[in-house]
Amino acid sequence: MAWSALAGATLVGAAPATGVQRTRTIAPGIQYSQYEISVAKRVARAHVLSLDLRDARVRVRLLYPGAVAARATVSRLAAAQGAVAGINGDFFHISETQHPGVAVTGSADGPAIANGHTLKAAVPDGQRFGPALPRGATTKDVLGVGTDRTARLDRLTLSGSVTTAQGRLPLGGFNQYALPQGSIGAYTSDWGGVSRARATCGTDTLRSAPCSADTYEVTIRGGRVVATADRPGSGPIAAGTTVLVGREAGARQLRKLFKGQPVQVRHRLVAASSRVSYLFALGGFPVLRHGTPLSGLDDTTSTLRTAVGIGDGGHRLLLLALDGAPGYRGGLTLAEVAAVLSKLGATDGFNLDGGGSTTLVARAPGASAATVRNHPSGGAERPVANGIGVFSVS
Rank of each mutant, 00 (worst) to 15 (best):
M1H: 04
W3L: 08
G8V: 00
A15H: 00
V20E: 10
Q21R: 14
G29S: 02
I30Y: 01
I30D: 01
R42S: 05
A46N: 05
V48L: 15
D52M: 01
L53F: 02
V58D: 02
R59A: 10
L62Q: 12
P65D: 12
P65S: 12
G66P: 12
A72I: 04
T73V: 14
G86E: 09
I87C: 07
S95W: 10
P100I: 04
A103H: 00
S107R: 08
A108D: 01
G110T: 07
A112E: 13
G130Y: 14
T139G: 12
R149F: 03
T150G: 02
T150A: 13
D154V: 06
S159C: 01
S161K: 12
L169P: 00
P180A: 08
G182M: 02
G192E: 08
V194W: 03
R198D: 09
T215D: 07
G222H: 01
G222A: 01
V226E: 06
D230A: 15
A238H: 03
A251F: 06
L257S: 06
G260S: 08
R275F: 13
Y278L: 15
L279Q: 15
A281D: 12
P293H: 03
L297P: 05
D298C: 00
D299H: 07
R305S: 03
R305M: 03
A307K: 07
L317G: 10
L318F: 14
L319M: 07
A321V: 15
D323Y: 10
G327D: 14
E336F: 08
L341S: 13
K343H: 12
R363S: 05
A364P: 01
G366R: 12
T371Q: 13
G379F: 06
N386Y: 05
